[in-house]
């Protein structure tokens, strides 16, 4: 339950972040993040659990924290855990099962929303999904993949997507 609460706190922070997908003026702090930056490790995304819903969340859903919640040290700092990179990572973590399916299918509304978060124009989605699909298929077929937790699988997926966008689709996407 403690981990869930931590996840909810982080999520509350993320949803109250002044950066939105459409905020033209949003600064993307992750742009300046060090190369070793890892949203899972540095922002505590791996600690977020969404497979179960606590009683409080059932009735109240996620408690809105008015944007003043201080992140715990495990959940990183405001300066680093900010921007589309972290929002996208959080999104991938939460919707992994759908993303896995839709990537295998080659299309779907969850992968489209993910690429929208990353600032990728809709005309580039099919190409990016195709490219991610080819790469992710290799990971999925790795013998060790089945033993990973959902969070670890999502991290693998996130790394592939971020890398593809950085190396092949930077011009079509604004996240990197």
């Amino acid at each position: 339950m403690k981990r869930i609460k931590q996840g909810i706190m982080l999520m509350s922070f993320l949803v109250s972040l002044p950066a939105t997908v459409f905020a033209e003026e949003a600064k993307i702090a992750a742009e300046t993040a060090p190369a070793s930056f890892n949203a899972w490790r540095d922002c505590g995304i791996g600690a977020m659990i969404f497979d179960e819903t606590p009683m409080a969340a059932i009735i109240s859903n996620v408690y809105w924290d008015s944007g003043t919640t201080a992140l715990t040290s495990a959940a990183g700092s405001r300066d680093t855990c900010f921007g589309k990179t972290v929002i996208a990572a959080s999104y991938i973590h939460e919707t992994y099962s759908r993303l896995e399916e839709e990537t295998a299918k080659g299309k779907g509304q969850h992968v489209a929303a993910m690429l929208t978060i990353m600032g990728c124009g809709s005309q580039s989605h099919a190409d990016i999904i195709g490219s991610v699909r080819n790469e992710f298929a290799k990971s999925v077929n790795d013998a060790s993949f089945g033993a990973k937790t959902t969070a670890a699988k999502a991290e693998v997926y996130n790394a592939i997507v971020q890398n593809k966008i950085a190396t092949e689709y930077a011009a079509q996407c604004q996240i990197i």
């Binding site: 949803v15 819903t53 809105w64």
Partner: peptide, 15 residues
């Protein structure tokens, strides 16, 4: 409170 719809979608539809 407010949040993105995908979260509600996940809680209600999936969970």
């Amino acid at each position: 409170s407010h949040e993105k719809f995908y979260r509600n979608n996940h809680i209600y539809v999936e969970n």
